Computed example of a mutant assay.
Amino acid sequence: MSLDVTATKPHERLAEALAPEMEAVNLMIRDRMSSEHAPRIPEVTAHLIEAGGKRLRPMLTLAAAKLCGYEGPYHIHLATTVEFIHTATLLHDDVVDESDQRRGRPTANLLWDNQSSVLVGDYLFSRSFQIMVETGSIRVLGILADASATIAEGEVLQLTAARDLTTTEDTYLKVIRGKTAALFSAATQVGAVISGADESVEKALYDYGDALGIAFQMVDDLLDYGGTEAIGKNIGDDFRERKLSLPLIKAVAKSDADEMAFWTRTIAKGKQVEGDLEAALDIMRKHGALDDTRDEALQWAAKAKACLAEVPAHDIRDMLSDIADYVVARIS
């Protein structure tokens, strides 16, 4: 198969290599997000799913299955399941975070209401379990059920850690391993499991997804303080929402008494005024918090690539390695 020469970014090359499978996933998404009795469900779902996301997580499932030589139909079901779980978490996250922008567009809770976002998210979670059951694999069901629980656990841990200036980097890693990396690792692992891959290959693909997801979230947290509006989110949202993401945790750990008073006012007590975001950035730069976060994200991306050494040589394996580089490309 000849790849599109215009597809220059790694995720675009992977999408091109998986084009027939992704089309099948998109067809299943449109079919399974329908509702005979509640037209708001496909309206809300379509607003988010069709907003131009890269579909990275379902592509990881398809890539893992193809890499492992799978020739059956159920990788389509699993990729659809992964996308539905992801979409459900986004709908719920935007309500929890009171967000008004997602992927550069108004959030569903802003266009409709919080109730619709929560209930449609619940519908998609339920739909995802209906679809994964169709594979007939108890192992796959267990992996994705565990991932769904871990995602929710990570979100709750983040909620309890928010605004707590004693939050450690270990706690942060538990949060992002739960809320983000769990679905990446499940996406790659189920692709291997449905293919009947060797245990060593399955573990390598799980570890790849875990490391990739951690790097992905660290980059996202870093871009909140150093990106542009073009990334589809408001710069400084994490600061305004008083989230203890890695750049802030690192800065707090090195802050002097005056700086701690600033963090106590702005994060612990939430009393923020004009210019506080710029002051926060100054403290982060002073203590190298942004550079240190960048270095850690690069280390996790390198770890993801190293995990692929256990996977058989394949064009798809090379593309997955490039995806790890791409995830951190915006900060490297």
Results as ranks from 00 to 15, higher is better:
Leu183Trp: 03
Asp210Pro: 00
Val140Met: 06
Leu205Ile: 07
Gln158Glu: 15
Ala215Asp: 07
Ala181Lys: 03
Gly226His: 13
Glu155His: 09
Phe125Thr: 04
Ala145Pro: 00
Val190Asp: 07
Gly154Asn: 01
Thr188Leu: 11
Arg163Thr: 11
Tyr206Gly: 07
Gln189Phe: 01
Tyr123Pro: 03
Leu173Tyr: 15
Ser116Met: 11
Leu165Ile: 14
Ile231Met: 13
Thr180Arg: 04
Thr180Pro: 11
Glu199Asn: 14
Leu165Gln: 00
Ala204Arg: 06
Ala215Thr: 10
Asp207His: 11
Gly227Asp: 14
Ile143Cys: 04
Ala186Ser: 13
Glu134Lys: 14
Ala186Arg: 03
Thr180Gln: 05
Ser195Cys: 10
Val140Asp: 02
Ala145His: 00
Gly121Arg: 02
Ala192Arg: 03
Thr171Ala: 10
Tyr208Lys: 09
Gln189Asp: 03
Ser128Gln: 04
Ile194Arg: 02
Ser195Ala: 15
Thr160Gln: 14
Gln189Lys: 12
Phe184Met: 10
Leu183Thr: 06
Ala149Tyr: 10
Ile143Asn: 01
Gln217Trp: 07
Phe216His: 05
Leu157Ile: 12
Gly154Ser: 06
Ala187Val: 01
Thr171Pro: 12
Asp146Arg: 13
Glu229Met: 00
Glu202Thr: 13
Leu183His: 05
Ala161Gln: 14
Leu223Met: 10
Ala192Thr: 00
Thr168Lys: 06
Asp210Glu: 14
Gly191Trp: 01
Thr160His: 13
Gly232Gln: 07
Gly136Cys: 08
Gly142Glu: 08
Thr180Trp: 02
Leu205Tyr: 04
Gly178Trp: 00
Asp224Thr: 09
Gln130Phe: 11
Ala182Thr: 05
Ala149Ser: 13
Phe129Lys: 03
Ala162Val: 09
Ile143Ala: 05
Glu202Arg: 12
Asp220Ile: 07
Arg139His: 10
Ala211Ile: 05
Val190Arg: 03
Lys233Pro: 05
Lys174Asn: 15
Leu157Ser: 09
Ser116Ala: 15
Asp224Asn: 13
Thr228Ile: 00
Leu157Tyr: 04
Asp221Val: 09
Val190His: 06
Leu165Trp: 02
Leu159Trp: 09
Glu202Ala: 14
Asp146Asn: 13
Gln217Leu: 11
Gln217His: 08
Val190Thr: 12
Phe184Glu: 01
